[in-house]
Design a binder for these strands. Structure first.
Lengths: 153, 153
DNA sequence: ATAATTGCAAAGTCTTTGCAGTTTG
DNA sequence: CAAACTGCAAAGACTTTGCAATTAT
């Protein structure tokens, strides 16, 4: 369907795979976690907030509490398979780490562009050389104006 | 004391100047606003949260309510003389727009580096050419690991 | 005068936590 | 069985809002 920017073979991420990582980390596999993971993967490339995820999970499993969703995401994040991004204002959004990318968010209409992983190499190198910093590129979003909002402004 | 990165003459920003901008925008000059502006300027290059600012203001003007500080910052921001930045987790921080710069925040210890305005030109150009986006560089922080945390990790 | 601003208290949004009961490995 | 996890309810951090009284212009 779409080619991978680096020509790597795209390894499909299944709920099973994710849960396995979780178990390997000492975690337990529960109904609630299964549901959260399935729903997260179903979101695909979409950026999901914890609350949206909770709502989607509760559509099929009404007993799963929001707190459990937050805790599951925390747990998944500590294994490194999931991470969250701050898209400016509003809640954090969660996604798998299998497909590295950066985000830019329109500060006016909240539209999102995904940028290829290399897009920040220049800044990353500077930060490292001049300040000794290691950039964690998946954790923040750039902010700006999308083409539509720029012309309207 | 310290030289400007671009060798421009540094125009000193005074409370009066800021309040004038506010008035020119149709705003009124009040005791509370005077106090907020003075305290904000006193913070210098430091990145202040609304709550920190409120606390500092209240040290001398206990009657000024936190809500007023938030509203004043909003108002100042809409004139363009102040803006806020998201430094990752936690509250936004506010600063004058007179001295453009970017931030990187350590995701482990919250240390901050300021980066010169040009540091993101490369990404900005890409965003513009490839996606039509206009980067609003003062609005976000990069996230990473500072030298100390990187070596400890 | 009149429109903007204030203080207050209350609510709103997003997230975390303590706890007692349940479930997993 | 022991440790991990859950639902719940409550609280916590940060920010916004409605309103009646005050104040700047």
């Amino acid at each position: 369907m779409h080619s991978h920017p680096h020509g790597e073979v795209e390894t499909p991420v299944t709920p099973q795979r994710v849960l396995e990582v979780l178990r390997r980390d000492g975690g337990r596999i529960t109904e609630a976690r299964r549901a959260v993971v399935e729903t997260l993967l179903a979101a695909g490339d979409h950026h999901v907030t914890a609350d949206e995820l909770a709502a989607a999970v509760q559509a099929r499993h009404p007993e799963v509490h929001r707190a459990t969703v937050y805790r599951t995401l925390d747990r998944l994040e500590s294994t490194g398979i999931v991470s969250h991004t701050h898209l400016g204002h509003g809640p954090s959004t969660f996604h798998l780490t299998d497909h590295p990318h950066h985000h830019a968010v329109c500060r006016s209409c909240n539209a999102i562009v995904e940028l290829p992983p290399g897009a920040l190499d220049d800044v990353a190198a500077r930060l490292h050389d001049q300040h000794g910093w290691t950039l964690a590129p998946q954790h923040f979003a750039l902010s700006g104006l999308c083409p539509d909002c720029a012309t309207l402004g």
